[in-house]
Design a protein around this nucleic acid. Structure first.
Length: 231
DNA sequence: ACATTAAATTCGA
DNA sequence: TCGAATTTAATGT
């Protein structure tokens, strides 16, 4: 079923988690709130698919999505986890091109979206919004470069540490804060390790005082050390 | 793979 | 709407 059909308006507390809303002028904000839709997606559901025309710019309100390139073409796939606060697809929205990746729900999640039309309208009129989008593009570029390095790491503990470091990005994923809600199984899937091995890595990282393992999530204690972690 | 523990859900008042 | 009982989910080894 189409996502749009079961979407609804956003609740006030959901709006609080949308970082770029705060930078808009009241009139702009009103227009956006009119257009903004929220939908609940189930495990495994695709939010957008490679090759589909772009209709929305999406953001994660709650839950966890994964971004991957198309499996149909080449084999090697890179996954990126998309935690709360993540807004994605602006590159394709800007160019009005078809989506270049699949976005799939790793767990039940709440996803928000504004139409391409409203996105364009904001770009045309709000300098603050333009600044947000530029910053977003720039930070994401850094993320992808970092992801390539992570792919080459062989030590499981390092892979886990660096991947976690990426997910705790305060600018790209402001909704995460100090506590990332992710299961060890989900993390294993994103990093490419077994749940058992992830558990082992997390235990090590916790012993080093870099993170704290909680039920259903991980808390950062020292983000800098997590990012630089090399065993 | 299994045992333990935490959280979510159900159900009866 | 409260909390105890039950089921489901996540963790640790």
């Amino acid at each position: 079923m189409a996502l749009l059909a079961r979407s609804r308006a956003a609740l006030p507390d959901e709006l609080d988690g949308i970082p770029w809303l705060q930078v808009l002028e009241p009139a702009e904000r009103r227009r956006v709130l009119d257009d903004l839709r929220v939908v609940e997606v189930q495990v495994g559901e695709l939010v957008c698919r490679v090759g589909r025309p772009v209709t929305f710019w999406f953001g994660v309100i709650d839950g966890l999505l994964k971004m991957s390139n198309d499996t149909a073409l080449g084999v090697p796939i890179t996954f990126t986890g998309l935690p709360p606060g993540a807004w994605f697809g602006e590159g394709t929205v800007l160019k009005h091109e078809p989506y270049r990746y699949n976005i799939q729900a790793l767990r039940r999640s709440l996803v928000a979206g504004i139409s391409v039309h409203t996105f364009d309208w904001l770009l045309d009129r709000s300098i603050a919004f333009n600044r947000f989008v530029m910053m977003q593009l720039n930070e994401r570029l850094g993320q992808f470069i970092g992801a390539r390095e992570i792919d080459r790491l062989t030590q499981p503990d390092r892979r886990v540490a660096r991947s976690l470091g990426a997910l705790f990005h305060p600018v790209l994923y402001p909704g995460v804060g100090g506590l990332l809600r992710i299961t060890q199984h989900e993390l294993g899937y994103l990093v490419g390790l077994s749940r058992q091995r992830v558990n082992q890595a997390l235990t090590t990282l916790q012993a080093e005082g870099v993170i704290r393992v909680e039920y259903g999530g991980v808390r950062v204690l020292d983000l800098e050390r997590l990012r630089r972690y090399d065993g």
